[in-house]
């Protein structure tokens, strides 16, 4: 989403990030017992993985400087402004829903989530969105109950 920049630049950032992850993990794994071949400890597998990850990310980093532009024509159609906004709204709604589930219970929380999501993308008229949300949350509830799938309890019952 960030600027279009030169294609190689994305790769450089990602490779740098992976290298950081690799090095930090290697450090962290040293803190666990690495052990030896005959008596491998809990740190054994992660440590060598972290080392491998660091090596591969260095290779990626080096390549991103050499091959800049050859590979990775950045993402397809870097979203326009509204696309980015929609994603942010959707994610916010989902995170909110997650926490609301435990408090409000399935029916109320789901109704609200559906209402927001229906309106995020297709800006449908309110009555249609409300009716749709009500219908979907009730139908989904019935279906999940039928299959005995666990749903969080909330203040207003289910």
């Amino acid at each position: 989403m960030r600027g279009r920049g030169r294609p190689g630049q994305h790769d450089r950032w990602v490779a740098g990030f992976l290298l950081l992850v690799g090095l930090l993990s290697a450090f962290e794994a040293r803190g666990l017992t690495v052990g030896e071949l005959g008596r491998p400890g809990p740190g054994f597998f992660p440590f060598y993985l972290a080392v491998a990850l660091s090596i591969v990310s260095v290779a990626l980093l080096v390549r991103s400087f050499h091959h800049a532009g050859l590979e990775g024509t950045a993402a397809q159609g870097s979203g326009e402004q509204s696309g980015g906004n929609k994603i942010i709204w959707t994610l916010l709604a989902l995170f909110g829903y997650t926490f609301a589930l435990d408090h409000l219970g399935f029916l109320v929380a789901t109704f609200l989530l559906m209402l927001i999501l229906f309106r995020v993308v297709e800006l449908r008229r309110w009555p249609a969105a409300v009716a749709g949300s009500l219908a979907t949350s009730l139908l989904a509830y019935g279906l999940f109950k039928l299959l005995q799938i666990r749903l969080p309890p909330g203040i207003w019952g289910p």
Binding site: L94, F95, T98, F99, L101, L113, A140, F144, I149, R150
Partner: peptide, 30 residues
């Protein structure tokens, strides 16, 4: 898709939750 995608997301969230009833599984999924 405007009608379909909220449903897909809803089923994903409940699916993730149903495995162990932990809302942090939903966070992990997101």
């Amino acid at each position: 898709y405007g009608i379909l995608f909220p449903l897909i997301l809803l089923f994903c969230v409940i699916g993730a939750y149903s495995v162990s009833g932990n809302i942090w599984d939903i966070i992990t999924m997101l």
